[in-house]
Simulated scan of single mutants.
Amino acid sequence: MTSTVKVIFVCLGNICRSPLADGLMLHKITERGLENFFEVDSAGTYAGHAGERADSRMRSTAQKHGVELASIARQFLAEDLDHYDYVIVMDDSNYSNVTRLATDDTQLSKVSKLRSFDKKASNKDVDDPYYGGISGFENCYQVVSESVDNFIDHLIQTHNIPTP
């Protein structure tokens, strides 16, 4: 049996983008019958929202698509670089904040931007919808959903995960 692949998604406050990616990945791997192969979490580089649920606008947008966001915000810790196999960040600022905590090349190699898995391999930022209108949350959902699908496909291939 393939060992568990450990993934953590990281944004600034852990209330919009990273809980969406966390919830979408859990939803999509469950749909594919792959939930036993993964450990999924999310965190923020800023601790100001620790203990809170995802932003209500993000939860509402996800729920409209049948996805539950159950995560509780927490701060990303240096120890997470040892525990997780993949540290997937939402933007350049998150990338800088996380890589600053890395103590060696192995930890650095675990960090990628989520949009490096979009169809164009754009490596762009996932825009933070927090200060915008509801359309920004829907756009964020679409971008994260596509990238998470492609990321899961990448993990299946990379780790030889058997698909049902």
Rank of each mutant, 00 (worst) to 15 (best):
L12Q: 05
T163P: 11
S135L: 14
S147K: 04
S18V: 01
M90L: 14
S122T: 10
S60M: 06
V144N: 09
I8S: 01
P162Y: 10
D80A: 12
P164Q: 10
Q63V: 04
G23Q: 02
N94R: 15
I8F: 00
D80L: 04
K124T: 12
R32E: 06
L155N: 10
S18K: 04
F37H: 03
A73Y: 09
R57F: 13
V143L: 02
I156G: 13
A78Q: 13
I134M: 01
S56Q: 06
T45E: 09
P19L: 02
A70S: 09
H65C: 06
Y86Q: 11
A121W: 03
D92F: 15
Y95S: 15
E146N: 05
S42P: 07
A70Q: 08
D85S: 13
A43H: 12
D149C: 12
L24H: 00
L34K: 08
H83D: 07
S145P: 01
Y130R: 06
N97C: 14
M25T: 02
N160D: 14
C140E: 01
Y141L: 00
L26Y: 03
S96V: 14
H49Y: 07
G48T: 05
S18F: 03
I88R: 12
D22Q: 03
A102L: 08
R32V: 07
A121N: 15
R57P: 01
V87P: 13
T4G: 00
N36F: 06
K64M: 09
N123Y: 12
S56W: 05
G13L: 02
I161N: 00
E68W: 09
P19W: 01
H27D: 04
T163E: 13
E79W: 04
D118G: 03
D85I: 05
L77T: 11
E138Q: 12
Q63H: 09
N94D: 15
N139R: 11
I88N: 14
F9K: 01
I161M: 05
T4E: 00
Q63L: 09
V40D: 01
S42L: 07
S3L: 02
K64L: 09
L114E: 11
I161W: 03
G136P: 06
A47K: 05
R57Q: 08
R17Q: 05
E138F: 04
S56G: 04
L12K: 03
V98I: 13
G51C: 08
A54E: 10
S71L: 10
A121E: 15
Y141W: 00
L108K: 15
L114M: 05
V40I: 10
V89S: 14
D128A: 06
G33Q: 07
F137D: 08
L20R: 00
